[in-house]
């Protein structure tokens, strides 16, 4: 894939946000907040970082792989997959509807290209990504494995089982990113179950930790992922703490957990879309 200019990538971010809002609005269900906050990450990953083939093969040999552990960001992931050629953009209109390949949470069951594992029940993705990364090593495949997790998701115990394992085995072909937006369904993470010092936690588990302080600035996100890639192959798993704002891009949605799992109504959608220019054409 030809490298795109940062302006072009920015346009994709804006379109992704429009897609997400229209998708959850159409079925009046889904999770708009987090994918709005992760638009830059999704676009930087799929249009700049990943060495991947939209002509999808489940085994992913010779490709970088991406796993979405916080499966409720499905609307954002589906948008970036469609916009990068995995399946027709038109199919986004089937999101969460009966007989769709675009399930509420990502699934392999309906054979949607781009998805290699089901996610939704939280805390499982890191283990899966580690298994895939170790298979790459066994196969002599030098490509990387990426994974995105939510910060609230880190409250699940399995994540820390996996964290311990990754360092023990020196799984250094894996780049994990945490969407560090400080919000979860019931409120701010500091109130619900405080994550305290995440950087120190991952470092104590034996990971190489980098921080991307402005996760909604495309250039910063790209630089962060580039830096993460430069740290692979050195015996440690890589953690990229990505500071984002839930609901970013829409003034009345930003920075609150209220849009974690609630769709906009007609009026709210119109207002939100008014703040996001249609750049690539709506589905």
């Amino acid at each position: 894939m030809e490298k795109k200019s940062i302006e072009d990538l920015q346009k994709i971010c804006t379109q992704l946000r429009r897609d997400v809002l229209r998708m959850v609005h159409a079925v009046q269900s889904g999770h708009p907040g987090a994918p709005l906050g992760c638009a830059e990450f999704f676009v930087a990953l799929y249009f700049d970082q990943l060495r991947h083939n939209p002509d999808f093969k489940m085994n992913g040999k010779g490709e970088d792989l991406f796993f979405l552990s916080n499966g409720h960001l499905s609307a954002g992931w589906y948008s970036v997959l469609a916009r990068s050629g995995y399946f027709p953009v038109e199919e986004l209109k089937t999101f969460r509807k009966l007989n769709s390949r675009l399930q509420g949470h990502p699934a392999t069951h309906e054979h949607l290209p781009g998805i290699r594992i089901a996610s939704g029940s939280l805390g499982q993705g890191l283990s899966v990504a580690l298994g895939a990364a170790q298979t790459k090593k066994l196969n002599g495949d030098d490509k990387l494995v990426y994974i995105l997790m939510g910060d609230g998701e880190l409250q699940e115990g399995q994540v820390w089982e996996a964290a311990m394992y990754a360092a023990h085995y020196g799984v250094d072909n894996l780049i994990a990113t945490v969407d560090y937006n400080g919000q979860q369904i019931d409120g701010p993470t500091t109130k619900i179950m405080d994550l305290k010092n995440l950087k120190a936690k991952w470092e104590a588990f034996g990971w190489e930790v980098i921080e991307t302080k402005n996760g909604n600035d495309l250039k910063s996100v790209m630089e962060g992922l580039e830096k993460a890639k430069s740290l692979t192959g050195k015996g440690k798993p890589i953690m990229n703490l990505l500071y984002t704002e839930m609901g970013y891009g829409v003034d009345f949605m930003v920075g609150t957990h209220k849009w974690h799992g609630s769709p906009p109504n007609d009026e709210q959608l119109a207002k939100a879309l008014g703040q996001l220019e249609e750049t690539l054409g709506d589905y």
């Binding site: 040999k61 805390g123 283990s127 899966v128 580690l130 298994g131 895939a132 066994l138 089982e161 996996a162």
Partner: peptide, 28 residues
């Protein structure tokens, strides 16, 4: 030895690892 993975007392992680290892053709 290179095809065997001691996971420690962490069964949830073990199941996830096994699922991931199938991606790329292993039979865990």
């Amino acid at each position: 030895p290179e095809r065997f993975f001691q996971t420690g007392i962490a069964e949830a992680n073990m199941i996830g690892l096994a699922a991931g290892m199938t991606i790329g053709g292993k039979i865990p």
